[in-house]
Amino acid sequence: MGKVKIKRKSTLIDMTAMSDVTVLLLTFFMLTSTFLQKEPITVITPSSVSEIKVPTSNLVTVLVSPKGNVFISLAGDKDSTYSSENMRAELIKNVVARYNDVYGTKIALTQSEVSTFAKTNMFGVGIKELKGWLDLSQEQRDAYIDPSKNPKAGIPIDMNQDLTKPNEFQIWMNAIYNLTNPNMEGAIKRGEGIAIKADKSTTYEKIQVVMDNLQTMKMNKFSLMTALKSEDE
């Protein structure tokens, strides 16, 4: 009798093809996506049919939380001389100098505090607290500007219209406008440089404070961040 031979199959699978696929996927993700920026509060922006994309460089994002806390984030130029880090370092020095000048204080930041600030994406503390904030650890800093943990977080802002004695928000914006980055000024003038980001359910009152301040500073062109919605929704 002939014996039935059961062929033993190897359990090894050739993973080369699988590897090819994953590398392709990886490449795709690396090229198409951008890193999530850490923000103190997550907001859901309203939607619009506008198809103008938010620029990635030369942009100031003003984040307004539903409770009215204001945060600023700054993105520098593509040119590495005016990179985000360099611009933030320059910004904070100018801001502190201007604040000392206007309010007669003597705040001085150390080199390490400046470099910590240069690495921070979004900030929102009063200039007086800035030095103490920059000395905290990463987690403590995040907690400090989180409106759910610290209701007082955010850049102090009011309806001040007297530019000889600007409020802190005006000092920040003015310093950003006057950065050595040559493209920033143009972007702000064209209305591409400033983006206001706020949650759907924020009341107009809170947004109006920011808009009013920008208007007072003659930055009357700016954009509102929205999510895309199709026209025939």
């Binding site: 994953t22 993700f29 103008i52 994309k53 591409e192 954009s223 929205t226 999510a227």
Partner: peptide, 30 residues
């Protein structure tokens, strides 16, 4: 493959593909 999968997971979690749109407005001077 294991390593690639880990990297993909990392990129999927830490990045975003959606770019926000903007609505440009200009206000009159104050």
């Amino acid at each position: 493959v294991d390593m690639n999968m880990l990297l993909i997971t990392f990129f999927m979690l830490c990045t975003t593909m959606i770019k926000s749109q903007t609505l440009q407005i200009s206000l009159p001077t104050n």
